[in-house]
């Protein structure tokens, strides 16, 4: 009898992959139908991230560097939305630069909608510089000579004609640098930006590279860090603006539990199969 249970367990390793796919789909979809939000205990890095924005005074300028495209938008857009809403609510100004050639339209549309909802004027309260190739070149240029790389903004306006950008001459004009990135741009900001910008740098990252940036928090190279959907949800809670990330966390929970179960069952099945192979009867 014991052998048959083991045989059953061992046979699970040959389960059709489509059954696993179906389980994943159910684990993600079902909690969304019964959406609920929970309260989180924010990490210290998330609190530092939020504090840096909460300390902004009226009229101060934030440099927002964004790098995501449609593929990674759902993970990073909630961070951008909360950040932009918070910056505008403090009547701070914002200069936005996009570091992904395939994300320019997406980023501009999102921020333009938020600006319109907050009653902010383009050119006075915010400027969208658009995309330029070479992240190192753009970062250095923004610090020392913005017009060398950006003679015009994304909409074709001359930067010297817009009230906000005409006053920009380099790093001293920014009170905060916020980097929201899914790829290597955050690393470029650490290498090229931290020595050139005197303002604190806060970073929002896609989950995949989140843990690797923890050492920059300890070294005080960056001031705040949020990573992945969990980081975005913590930030939404800290900012008092519960939205997409907090809502999606219930689906994230069930999917994580499913992954843990898959690992446990997969190993149990593997060892059962190995034990049966070694047993002579």
């Amino acid at each position: 009898m014991r052998i048959s249970y083991l045989g059953l367990l061992a046979s699970l390793s040959r389960i059709d992959r489509r059954i696993i796919y179906l389980l994943v789909a159910c684990a993600v979809a079902l909690p969304l139908l019964a959406a609920s939000t929970t309260r989180l205990i924010p990490a210290e890095e998330s609190q530092s991230f939020h504090r840096a924005i909460a300390q902004l005074a009226e009229g101060e300028t934030v440099l927002l560097a964004v790098e995501y495209n449609a593929g990674t938008a759902f993970e990073l857009e909630p961070m951008v939305v909360t950040l932009v809403e918070e910056v505008f609510s403090r009547n701070a100004r914002m200069v936005v630069s996009c570091f992904d050639a395939q994300g320019v339209g997406l980023v501009e549309e999102t921020i333009a909608e938020l600006a319109a909802a907050s009653g902010k004027t383009y050119g006075t309260d915010w400027v969208f510089l658009g995309y330029r190739p070479s992240a190192p070149g753009v970062i250095i240029s923004l610090a020392t000579a913005p017009y060398a790389v950006f003679p015009r903004d994304h909409r074709g306006n001359s930067l010297s004609d817009l009230p906000l950008s005409s006053s920009l001459s380099g790093y001293a004009d920014y009170q905060l640098v916020a980097v929201i990135a899914s790829g290597t741009t955050a690393q470029d900001w650490v290498i090229y930006g931290t020595g050139r910008f005197h303002a604190p740098i806060i970073v929002g990252l896609g989950g995949g590279i989140g843990p690797t940036f923890q050492s920059f928090i300890d070294a005080r190279t960056i001031t705040g860090l949020i990573a992945g959907l969990r980081g975005a949800a913590e930030y939404e809670q800290l900012a008092g603006r519960p939205a997409e990330a907090l809502r999606a966390l219930s689906a994230q929970s069930t999917a994580h539990v499913l992954l843990v179960l898959l690992i446990v069952v997969g190993n149990a099945s593997f060892f059962a199969a190995r034990w049966l192979e070694r047993t002579p009867y």
């Binding site: 992959r17 499913l258 997969g266």
Partner: peptide
């Protein structure tokens, strides 16, 4: 683009099981 990248969740689940 969004759907292509989201496929990775399914493949990852299958990979951790096997």
């Amino acid at each position: 683009q969004a759907s292509m990248l989201s496929l990775l969740a399914f493949y990852m689940a299958s990979a951790v099981f096997r």
